[in-house]
């Protein structure tokens, strides 16, 4: 076997031995939200009447971010669920809104450097993470006095 071939084989074995995986998985909840949250631009009132952009006025912008760590190659996330209720309730109340529409759940960048850190992410104790961001329009019904 030539030296070059042996070198390549050793490098390959070393690379495979140092392979790793890191990340996290989290459940996204809003179980204590006091306002309706709609991913579409439409929300109803108590009588079932739909309201959309023509009958809603935007009074604020919802933006909540939480990053959750994970271990053991993303199998263990601490905590396993993230509740965004408190932040949502506070922001909607501060804006004087009645609902959130156009809600978007985003897994953003920012954890790539941690999840993909070479060699160290082969260790099960090396942390990964998942950054979650909730955004949307805080709205209230047009021509409805607070």
């Amino acid at each position: 076997m030539s030296l070059a071939l042996i070198t390549r084989a050793l490098l390959l074995l070393g690379a495979l031995g140092a392979s790793g995986c890191a990340g996290a998985r989290v459940n996204v909840t809003a179980d204590r939200a006091r306002y309706p949250l709609s991913l579409s631009p439409v929300v109803r009132d108590g009588r079932g009447r739909p309201y959309d952009a023509a009958s809603l006025v935007k009074v604020g912008w919802l933006d909540v971010r939480k990053t959750t760590p994970g271990f053991v190659y993303s199998a263990l996330t601490v905590p396993p669920a993230r509740d965004f209720s408190d932040e949502i309730n506070a922001q909607v109340a501060a804006a004087g809104g009645e609902a959130v529409v156009g809600l978007t759940v985003t897994v953003a960048g920012g954890c790539g450097w941690l999840n993909g850190f070479p060699i160290l992410n082969a260790l099960p104790v090396w942390p990964g993470c998942v950054p979650v961001r909730l955004t949307g329009d805080i709205v209230r019904r047009r021509n409805i006095l607070p």
Binding site: A22, G128, V130
Partner: peptide, 10 residues
């Protein structure tokens, strides 16, 4: 649920 993970073979 939201997931983010990376596999690395250096």
């Amino acid at each position: 649920s939201a997931h983010s993970w990376q596999v690395t073979v250096p």
